[in-house]
Design a protein around this nucleic acid. Structure first.
Lengths: 207, 207
DNA sequence: TGCGATTTGTTGCATATGCGACACATGGTG
DNA sequence: CACCATGTGTCGCATATGCAACAAATCGCA
């Protein structure tokens, strides 16, 4: 048990990194092919060329795999990155944090399209949304509340985080009709006004 | 030593199959990227996520890896397959043995394009050619010698086996301008007349 | 020429993984 | 209902692999 949760081992055994990488890759492939619900542990281990018992040495089940994967992806956010995020929003630059997240999604577009859609996992969507919410909240505390219409902050956060998923789904289901950077700018502008980030508007407000 | 040469283990340890598969895949990728000569063992193991010492538990060096790989690919040929081969040639069908070889090449077109070309390995080309020659000789003994122009059989075999490489290179360097089956038919017709396979001509001799 | 840097093989020990077996749950079929 | 097939977790033991260190060879460079 424990799965080495929390502390991040910088230099794990090569076999461990390799095994986990193959299991995650197999899981993503199978999810795209069959949908999340239909994927079994045996499927994953067969595809990954890993013994089934080895799977349980790393993960409790496929949900735990997904969970650990997301923890890896959305690991570090609470640091000076927020400052860059704020500056980027002010200048209509692509916010680096959001951009890197979108770039990660771009590496596995089919996986995210499935996981955020009808064949996906509600827990995944919920966690994805909560994560966006958390990031937004941190940014909000850092930057300040512009209070657009007096509605509760939590309401606005929930609104914007769900809206973000909608934007990403649109982007994935329409074969990425714009660049990651452009999408990041649009999305950050939308969420900024929705959630009420106290940022002085600039003169560049075109498409 | 010995590398388990000869006897084919039908059910090796999963780790062994996985490791060898990854090493071969990494070797092929690197060969395409850097050319055969520039690939080092360290390159291969880094790419494959395998410890370098593990490489030496399977192969003597990159030449041995290539050698074992080809042994796997061209493993079984001496059996009743030859009968099908003969029938196919008679009827202008795609010969199954040649077709399956070409299909294998089609799985790794870049690798074969490099290895049979200027950035490849002379030993690889030689082995490839000798293998074709061996298959042709077996077919010749099985079918009979039509003796096209009185030249020595070995001369004709060498001629045809090298010519086959030329055809494959043309096919790879021109982005596979025809199907594997079509290529197999053309190549088997050409080699048939060159080497003097005693096969009665059929009325279907168009493109 | 000589001198670092890199690659190559090799070895002994530590460990992650494979394997087979087991009990249990689930679900379809007679 | 019984029955079989399949998936899930878990366990003890065997083994393939990782790791660190080493000497030797090779290569580029001053």
């Amino acid at each position: 048990m424990m799965q080495n949760s929390g502390v991040v081992e910088v230099h794990e055994d090569l076999r461990v990194r390799r095994t986990r990488k193959m299991l995650v890759a197999a899981f993503m492939e199978l999810t795209v092919e069959k949908g999340f619900a239909a994927v079994t542990v045996r499927d994953i281990t067969d595809r990954a060329m890993v013994n089934r018992s080895t799977f349980y040495r790393h993960f409790l089940d496929k949900y735990d795999l997904l969970d650990q994967y997301m923890t890896d992806v959305y690991g570090s956010a609470s640091d000076e990155k927020l400052a860059e995020e704020k500056v980027a929003r002010k200048k209509d630059f692509a916010p680096p944090g959001l951009t890197s997240l979108l770039k990660h999604i771009q590496e596995f577009p089919d996986f995210y399209r499935v996981m955020l859609g009808a064949q996906g996992d509600p827990k995944f969507i919920d966690r994805f949304r909560k994560n966006s919410e958390r990031r937004l909240r941190a940014l909000l505390e850092y930057v300040g509340d512009g209070d657009p219409n007096g509605s509760p902050i939590e309401l606005r956060l929930s609104y914007a985080s769900c809206a973000g998923i909608g934007v990403i789904l649109w982007w994935l289901e329409n074969n990425q009709p714009c660049t990651v950077e452009q999408l990041a700018v649009w999305l950050s502008q939308l969420t900024g006004t929705s959630v009420g980030l106290a940022i002085k508007p600039t003169q560049s407000a075109q498409s």
